[in-house]
Each structure stands twice: as structure tokens, then as C-alpha cells.
């Protein structure tokens, strides 16, 4: 990163992350799916932030086709845990440009998510890391890592888009 902060890029990335959050909160599944690149990895580790997902269990470790399956499952109408869908409100913050290399931008952010479902109201806190890629359609997600801050503890079902 140059010492001079690229405010235009920061604004563009912010807008992208806010849009992603809005699609998630609105349960707009296919619109959210369209944000991913073909080589995407969607990763929600368990038991810390730095486990090897190829060797150890993660809460989610989806390649692009498994992201597609996850989305399709919602549309069957029989993804019971999301029928009715969770009511969601999240705040995205702490957006920090970590690195820009060619057409790829590494970004850190935090999110605080309020979920209301049949069980109860639940608050989730996450530290996120994105690899965004500039494409002809605009910014896209090549990688999203969501570190739930309490991922070493037993967690209730987490079946909305985090």
C-alpha cells in the first residue's frame, strides 16, 4: 500500500461491502451469489482464525459450486431453518484496505449482526477478510473469510448468509 490512502478506492470498496451486507440482510440470495467469482472460496472457520481448512473442520468451507448449492437450497422453500427466513440487521465497519495487487484488493472489515428467528434474538460478531477482484462487471468477491469471534464455543444454527 502506498502511504497515500486512495480515497476513491476506499469509497468504492465501502460501497461494495455495504451492498453485500444489504443483499445478505434482505435475503436476496441469487443477487448475493452473483457477487462471487468462478474461483471463489467462502470460508467460516471454526476453532480459531488460522486453522488449515483442508485438514480441519470449518463451519463453512465452500468452493463456488458449493456456494451455488447453498443458494439453491434456500430456493427449494424447504430449507426449514430459513423458512421463515431470519430477520437480519447488520452493521459493517472497520473497513481497511490491506493490499492492492494488480486487479485484486485485500480488505478487512468487521460486522455486528443482529438475527431474529424462531428460536430467539442472537448477536453475531465477525471479523471479515475479503479478496475482491476488479472485473468487467465491477468488483467481485474471490474470497471471503468470516471469523466469528466466538467460533471456539458451541454455536447455535447459523443458516443465514453471514
Amino acid at each position: 500500500m502506498s502511504s497515500q490512502l486512495d480515497l476513491a478506492l476506499l469509497a468504492e470498496v465501502q460501497q461494495f461491502l455495504y451492498m453485500e451486507a444489504r443483499l445478505q440482510d434482505s435475503n436476496l440470495y441469487s443477487e448475493w451469489e452473483a457477487l462471487w467469482t468462478d474461483d471463489a472460496i467462502y470460508w467460516v472457520p471454526a476453532n480459531g482464525a488460522d486453522i488449515d481448512p483442508e485438514e480441519q473442520m470449518s463451519i463453512i468451507y465452500d468452493n463456488r459450486s458449493r456456494i451455488g448449492l447453498r443458494i439453491k437450497q434456500f430456493y427449494t422453500g424447504k430449507r426449514h431453518t430459513q423458512a421463515p427466513a431470519s430477520a437480519l440487521g447488520r452493521v459493517v465497519s472497520n473497513i481497511e484496505l490491506l493490499d492492492v495487487t494488480g486487479d485484486e484488493i485485500k480488505v478487512a472489515s468487521s460486522a455486528m449482526i443482529f438475527e431474529c428467528n424462531l428460536r430467539a434474538d442472537t448477536i453475531w460478531a465477525t471479523r471479515n477478510e475479503f479478496l475482491l477482484r476488479r472485473t468487467e462487471e465491477g468488483l467481485r468477491m474471490a474470497r471471503k473469510k468470516v471469523v466469528l469471534v466466538n467460533n471456539e464455543k458451541p454455536l447455535y444454527t447459523l443458516s443465514f448468509l453471514v
Binding site: 473442520m57 463451519i59 463453512i60 468451507y61 465452500d62 448449492l69 431453518t81 444454527t157 447459523l158 443458516s159
Partner: peptide
């Protein structure tokens, strides 16, 4: 490991619905 990760746990294709 891959199949288990997809199926079970808080976000699993199967177990999130069982738990529901």
C-alpha cells in the same frame, strides 16, 4: 472431511434443518 463440512454443524446442509 469435505462432505462432513457441507452436511453438519451450525451451517450444515443437513444438520441445520435437523436442529431446527
Amino acid at each position: 472431511r469435505q462432505q462432513t463440512m457441507g452436511s453438519v454443524g451450525p451451517a450444515g446442509f443437513l444438520l441445520a434443518d435437523d436442529s431446527e
